[in-house]
Amino acid sequence: MEALGRRVVIDSLTSEKYLRVASISVAFYDYVLTLPAEWRFYRSQSSIFHLSLACTLFILIRYISIMAIVTSNYGFFSTAYTLQTCQQYYLVAPAFKAIQTMISQAILGIRTFNIARRDRRIGIILLLLYLLSTSAEWFADMFHRTPVIDDVRHCTSGDAGKVLSTWFYYLAVLVYDIVIVTISTMHLLRYNTLSSRVEQLIRVLIYDGIGYFIVLSASNVLNLILYRTTNIYTQSAGASVGYALTWIMSQRILINIRGMTEPNSQRLENVIVARPTLTAQKKVMSGLRSQFESKSHSKGSDGSKIPVDADLRAKSPRNSNDMELGIRVRVERSVMVDYMEESEQSSSWVK
């Protein structure tokens, strides 16, 4: 019976080793793949002392995630731990995990706040939900934690309490993700997209949110199930997978948002003008990127330059259902304006 139990432990450790190696490989591959995006984030900043919110969040989720993966896997793959040294180290990886989750949830919460057009009531609800969720996560992640030393001196942490509580950490994360993604998706579906470009923007935002939720929910459910078991040797088997997926999906949201709003000076964009979607679009992105400052001009029939905002008032028909009647488009360079059929009202898309 003892030999059978030892074999089960060895098999579980082997499976955990494969999961950890796979997650490290995927994380490293994604890190290399996103190095150009990281460079573009740095290059777009006005000063190293005045980083944008998006750039700050990108740096935090990227390098806190690396620390979480390194500390967790160092404890597992090292074979030099004693019970005394493991007691000094076993809470480091869970602490980085909680910090990583806080940053990831902040990214999702700020994104939802901007999608909701910075509505004050929505903002208060999101802030309270964030504080409640992170408090519950820290408590569940640290409560009843105990150092775990196996036969080959790997050091991990497990939940050895009479009442298992660490699984509640992943339940709190799941609840937060469900509420946040539901709020953002509902607001996105309410937008009246009259332009194919803005419709594409809304579609990408919806897919990002749903994709984030599906991928991380699968990881969280796996860890929730593992931490519901009483075998402390298998409880942390899926932790490294969670670190890698949280990192990848969170930074992808920031990269995609920046990619949709990044100016491209080498390409002349067609700006299709209408209401009310422009205001919605600008408010969605305004928290992560500042608005342009100088006015844009379009070319009239005689070749003269006409301010776009004046041209809007002249060309766009008024609609009693418009959410906002006054629109001013401000960009940093002159652009060509293409008008669609009169029967088709369109919206402005400025990159």
Rank of each mutant, 00 (worst) to 15 (best):
G238R: 07
K305D: 04
S316I: 13
S301Q: 13
F292V: 00
T279V: 12
L325C: 05
I257T: 08
A237N: 03
T246I: 07
M260A: 13
G326V: 12
E262W: 09
G242Y: 01
N256L: 07
K315L: 07
K295Y: 02
N231P: 03
D302F: 02
D322C: 04
T261W: 05
L325E: 13
T234S: 15
D311Q: 10
R289S: 12
S296H: 00
L288S: 06
A239E: 11
A237Y: 02
H297P: 05
R267C: 01
T277I: 07
P307H: 07
A280V: 09
A244R: 02
R258P: 04
I232C: 11
A274P: 06
S304A: 08
M285A: 08
Y243N: 10
I255R: 09
E269Q: 12
T234L: 06
G287A: 02
P307Y: 04
V241I: 15
S298L: 08
K315T: 10
L245K: 05
N264G: 04
G326E: 11
G238T: 06
G238H: 08
N321Q: 12
A244Y: 00
S265G: 14
G242Q: 13
N321L: 14
G326N: 12
G259Q: 11
V308M: 12
D309L: 07
M323H: 12
R267H: 08
E324H: 13
E324W: 10
A274F: 03
S240Y: 03
N231L: 10
N270E: 05
S250I: 02
S320W: 04
G326S: 12
S304I: 01
L312F: 15
K295C: 11
S304V: 09
L245N: 08
A237D: 01
K283W: 03
M260V: 09
G259S: 09
P276I: 09
R313M: 09
G242K: 11
F292A: 05
F292Q: 12
I327W: 04
L245Y: 00
V308I: 15
S240R: 08
G287H: 10
R318V: 06
T234V: 07
E262D: 14
S316K: 09
A244T: 10
V308N: 09
R313Y: 10
P317T: 06
S320K: 13
T246M: 13
S320I: 14
M323K: 14
R289G: 00
S316W: 06
S290E: 12
V284G: 00
W247A: 01
S316F: 03
E262Y: 08
D322K: 14
V241F: 11
S236T: 06
T234K: 07
E269K: 03
G303F: 02
K282C: 06
S265K: 12
S298G: 15
H297S: 04
M323G: 01
I306H: 03
R275W: 01
Q235Y: 04
A274R: 04
A244K: 01
G242H: 07
Y243R: 06
S290T: 11
L278V: 08
R252V: 00
E262I: 04
Y243Q: 00
S250F: 02
F292M: 07
R267E: 08
Y233H: 14
S265Y: 15
L288A: 05
R289V: 13
A310S: 15
D302C: 12
N231R: 01
L288R: 01
G259F: 02
H297E: 07
T279Y: 11
I257V: 12
Q281D: 11
D309S: 15
N321E: 13
D311I: 07
D311N: 05
K283S: 06
L278Y: 13
P263I: 00
L268W: 02
P263A: 01
